[in-house]
Design a binder for these strands. Sequence first.
DNA 1: CGGTATATTGAGCGGGCTCAAGTGCGGTGG
DNA 2: CCACCGCACTTGAGCCCGCTCAATATACCG
Lengths: 230, 230
Amino acid sequence: MTNNQNQSVSCSNCAALDQSILKILSNKKPEMLKMVQHGIIFKSHSDLLTQGTQVKGVYCINSGRLKIYKNSESGKEQIIRFAKRGDLLGFRTLIGGHELGVSATTIEDCTVCFVERRDFLKMIQAVPEIKEKLLEDLAEDLAEMVEALTTMAQSSVSSRLCSALLLLDELYDNQGINLSRENLANFVGTAQESIIRKLSEMKNDQLIEISGRKITILDRAAITKTSLFS
Amino acid sequence: MTNNQNQSVSCSNCAALDQSILKILSNKKPEMLKMVQHGIIFKSHSDLLTQGTQVKGVYCINSGRLKIYKNSESGKEQIIRFAKRGDLLGFRTLIGGHELGVSATTIEDCTVCFVERRDFLKMIQAVPEIKEKLLEDLAEDLAEMVEALTTMAQSSVSSRLCSALLLLDELYDNQGINLSRENLANFVGTAQESIIRKLSEMKNDQLIEISGRKITILDRAAITKTSLFS
DNA sequence: CGGTATATTGAGCGGGCTCAAGTGCGGTGG
DNA sequence: CCACCGCACTTGAGCCCGCTCAATATACCG
């Protein structure tokens, strides 16, 4: 773990917190913000959460992107979702008190803030509004997972790839998707080779542009259509 | 909707509530229990929740089983999970205030209790402990969905069928699984014919017994093994 | 006992997986 | 500056799982 704290990153001026739990805290109990460790830097390929371990605390992502994934019995990695600026990691497990069911690893250099497990629990107790927010977030996450499960069960690789590309375009702020083929495959739930072949087809059909590992969406309408059918 | 109320079903003597939210309520604010409509009877194939509509309130299942499912764009039904005695339906959507993302339909005759939307919200406000419990339940549901997504993405039909059978054996209290092949297929995420073929194989291998639509597990160890690999 | 829903079996095909070989690119060191 | 190396990416070939379509059998229900 890289542990360089950068105190120039603080909650009170952090745009990432606009809608977040820590923002609620900074309104209701600003004095509790001093429990937050700011501006911790993680290089790419660092683990923040590890499946099967106890969660140390909660991370709020300030910059950079991560993958949240599960390693199955057979050892294959299934990426559940991605996280970026403003996302809070670790609180789901913290509530239940169980060990982590997923891992979180940076796929870029990241800056994050951290709250110790017991401090976060104090925050929750002190500010009931946080619980409301957590409930809403969880309910929404669950709805997304239901959607994902249905898609995974019923749609072809092409269709799932298109869904993934639309989602990833958001993740990368419409600036071009920059993700390894392997991560893409582990997210879509297929083999790397299948992903590559489908991408080539889509490139030929002028739906996307590929330069190196960077994918840019050209024909969003067509991709949306394929994401829904077949 | 069949609306025969049966007042002999009451929360104070309902075993279904042992660990449930309404149990918490009956401890903390027993006077609010009068908001609950008891013993409503739904025949098999009745809809309690319908995807895309607003939720009317929360149902607590007293007896009988239901399927919770989503209809995809292509019209195919994906069963997300099943519900039985003690399960609470509808509260996830109620919290978020969005329209329902899933439907719930009885697959047997059911007896349920019902709480109006606004009454349930009052209960939550009156008894903060309910929120804690909801949070825990949601976090657990989410963990299960992550597991389900991973399995769906990575495992063969045989493996998924075995997982499903183990889960369904629980649902049917180890008394034999009594579910249509279509529902089984829509849960496993495959074609009905595939399910039937795999079941025949398993019958030949003495892993299960089939009489009519009823499936009984004979060799749990072998089925568990197949549920994990391939 | 007829009619309808459900379950089963068969045949054939194609999507997507696996294995294996080949290509491009960035970094590193001579 | 270029040769080399390692890694990620790409392409090819072949096979098998699981899907679809179609026919038949069985169970359920009036």
